[in-house]
Write a protein that binds this DNA or RNA. Structure first.
Lengths: 104, 104
DNA sequence: CTTCTATTTCGACTATTCTTGAAATATATT
DNA sequence: AATATATTTCAAGAATAGTCGAAATAGAAG
């Protein structure tokens, strides 16, 4: 993963609203959650949420699928894997990073 | 780790300059690097670098120690561990999220 | 084809971040 | 004390992000 891409994804996760959204989606697993459900949960204007969702979509961290009038959001687990991989491998490569094991 | 703190650290890492700085410091290991060396490496105004360093310091990702007129910067490996831990545990990295009701 | 629900886009505003040169501070050396 | 080096703080402008309500769009159902 390139540094620029990692930075964009980190920036995207680095907002409390978006991190909350992302966490809810990761925890929801493969089923995902409808936008409306996220809005109820977080309690912000629909347009604001939509704006944050676009940020997460643009960086590839989540995706949306339409089911009738409802948009289902899902975390993209692969991109999270790659991001954590970047932090652990690319950044901790030469150092004694005690995060157990996962060096690819 | 609280969500707010994780978000602040992610935001701090989510800027290309700061991620570059952080990566350089992690790779430099326990010895760290002087501010001036980082400036040469990255090529921005000293005041700009100082501003970014403060962000990384404020979020606990790096620290500084004075050696005569020089300030040595070091990555705080423990805080990186905690942050990756948050992403992995709290947000459930390895998919197959065990949705054990702790959603909030 | 009208209406209903769900969500996005638009427009406008405020707040925050990024950037830099100049001035200030800290420490060492003469 | 005067000078030199390393770095920060200050001040100010430009750029970007966050917020919201209103209007627009997409699809389903009457």
């Amino acid at each position: 993963m390139k540094l620029e891409k990692a930075a964009k994804q980190l920036e995207s996760l680095g907002n409390p609203v978006r991190l909350q959204v992302y966490r809810a989606l990761v925890r929801a697993g493969e089923d995902g959650l409808p936008v409306g459900h996220l809005q109820d949960k977080i309690g912000i204007a629909a347009s604001t949420l939509s704006h944050h969702l676009r940020s997460l979509i643009n960086t590839g961290l989540i995706s949306q699928e339409r089911q009738a009038t409802t948009l289902i959001c899902r975390a993209n687990f692969q991109s999270m894997d790659q991001l954590v991989g970047y932090l652990v491998n690319e950044c901790c490569l030469d150092a004694r990073c005690k995060t157990d094991g996962k060096v690819a």
